[in-house]
């Protein structure tokens, strides 16, 4: 059974079709990059999967269960974790508390106690290398640390699917390589499928994804293994326009 299945999902805002009949399938533990220029519907697609918006048409199945109309707080415990384009940690809470929130509410039945959650948070903090900052208020961190906190918070939910919205934007290339390596390693160990959404930092996609889905004006343009997809003339055209006539 596929981990995530989208069947003809469409989301409109008034007259604008942000996501246009998108179907896709994702296996457990798979790495997928979603690529597309600004306004191609990537973030909306993420919002539809995590439940921030409900689609007008189509169905979303998670491990075979229909979650199309399910509110986001019920989807998260099933194993859908996400990070935001601009990191949104809980500013007044410490890094440790932020991550503990993920452990507390991100699993089915919310059975993890406060103390257990804080222990889980400590383990993840050590894993991602945030020890020096764990008792700082998350709002006072640098952007890169905020991103790491957000990823750690999502990992504390023990997700089966991790949606990363522009997780690497604004980062130094060496930081990106480090982050990609870290996420890759953790995801492999924990069997997490990762969907990373990227506008133009191909470095992250190439380093991570097994397959790439290219969105253009809300519709799926290409769905192929990474190298093949990025060399596809249609993709080059979407990004760079028509090649000059010889």
């Amino acid at each position: 059974m596929a981990l995530l299945e989208l069947e003809n999902v469409t989301k409109r805002f008034g007259g604008l079709t942000a996501v246009d009949h998108v179907s896709l399938e994702l296996e457990h533990g798979q790495f997928v990059g979603i690529v597309g220029p600004n306004g191609s519907g990537k973030t909306t697609l993420f919002n539809v999967i995590s439940g921030v918006f409900f689609p007008e048409e189509g169905r979303i199945l998670f491990e075979g269960q229909d979650i199309t109309g399910m509110p986001p707080y019920k989807r998260a415990p099933l194993g859908i974790g996400r990070t935001f384009q601009i990191p949104r940690p809980f500013g007044s809470a410490t890094v440790r508390e932020n991550i503990a929130v993920g452990a507390m509410f991100g699993t089915l039945g919310h059975k993890t106690s406060v103390d257990e959650s804080l222990e889980i948070a400590d383990a993840i903090i050590a894993r991602v290398g945030l020890e020096a900052h764990k008792d700082k208020a998350a709002g006072t961190l640098t952007p890169v640390e905020k991103k790491l906190t957000e990823i750690a918070r999502a990992l504390a939910m023990k997700p089966k699917l991790l949606l990363m919205d522009e997780a690497m934007a604004g980062m130094h290339p060496s930081d990106i390589d480090q982050m990609v390596a870290l996420i890759k390693q953790i995801a492999r160990e924990e069997q997490i499928a990762v969907v990373a959404m990227v506008e133009h930092i191909m470095r992250a996609v190439v380093g991570m994804a097994e397959k790439v889905i290219v969105l253009h004006q809300g519709a799926k343009l290409v769905d192929a293994p990474t190298k093949e997809a990025l060399e596809d003339p249609r993709v080059v055209e979407v990004y760079l326009g028509h090649p000059p006539e010889e």
């Binding site: 921030v52 940690p89 809980f90 007044s92 929130v101 509410f105």
Partner: peptide
């Protein structure tokens, strides 16, 4: 605390 700081982020955290 989570919902006071960011209600939407709190929702997707479960």
């Amino acid at each position: 605390t989570a919902l006071r700081e960011d209600e939407d982020a709190a929702k997707v955290m479960g």
